[in-house]
């Protein structure tokens, strides 16, 4: 049943996971599972994120100083590692978002024009 579900979902483009994580964290600190949930929910279950893949990405972002991490307690009273956006991360998010928007706009224009012609 889950395999069925997976097939219909979109796989993430390379490098976009970082952007999504940064974006999710803009609403405040969150733990790994929460981030994964948030991506899935916000995308209306369209995007597929293998939860395991999240952690290397978090690791990478932390190493670059864009996010910071702290152990805390979640709402259901469990220990969890909470990630939050740093100032550098905020800047990076702006930069990446602009880039992404330009890219999608450009790609959209190309794909759109072809559609008109045909």
């Amino acid at each position: 049943m889950i395999t069925q579900e997976t097939k219909n979902r979109l796989e993430l483009l390379q490098g976009t996971l970082d952007l999504l994580i940064l974006r999710i964290l803009i609403f405040g600190s969150q733990h790994g599972q929460g981030i994964a949930r948030a991506i899935q929910q916000t995308s209306e279950e369209e995007l597929l994120v293998e939860h395991g893949a999240l952690y290397p990405a978090l690791q990478r972002l932390e190493a670059r100083g864009w996010i910071s991490a702290k152990w805390g307690v979640s709402i259901n009273n469990r220990k969890a590692r909470f990630y939050s956006l740093t100032t550098a991360g905020r800047k990076q998010l702006v930069k990446e978002t602009t880039k992404w928007k330009r890219l999608t706009a450009a790609i959209g224009r190309i794909l759109g024009s072809r559609a008109e012609r045909s």
């Binding site: 790994g32 599972q33 293998e50 939860h51 395991g52 259901n76 469990r78 969890a80």
Partner: peptide, 29 residues
């Protein structure tokens, strides 16, 4: 912690504890 969070969420949706844990592990990869 991640897997526990996920399985608890799934349990809230009505899965049995055993199934929820397995499902959580599956989604984790």
């Amino acid at each position: 912690a991640h897997i526990r969070h996920e399985s608890e969420r799934l349990q809230e949706q009505g899965m049995s504890e055993c199934d929820a844990l397995a499902a959580a592990r599956r989604t984790f990869g």
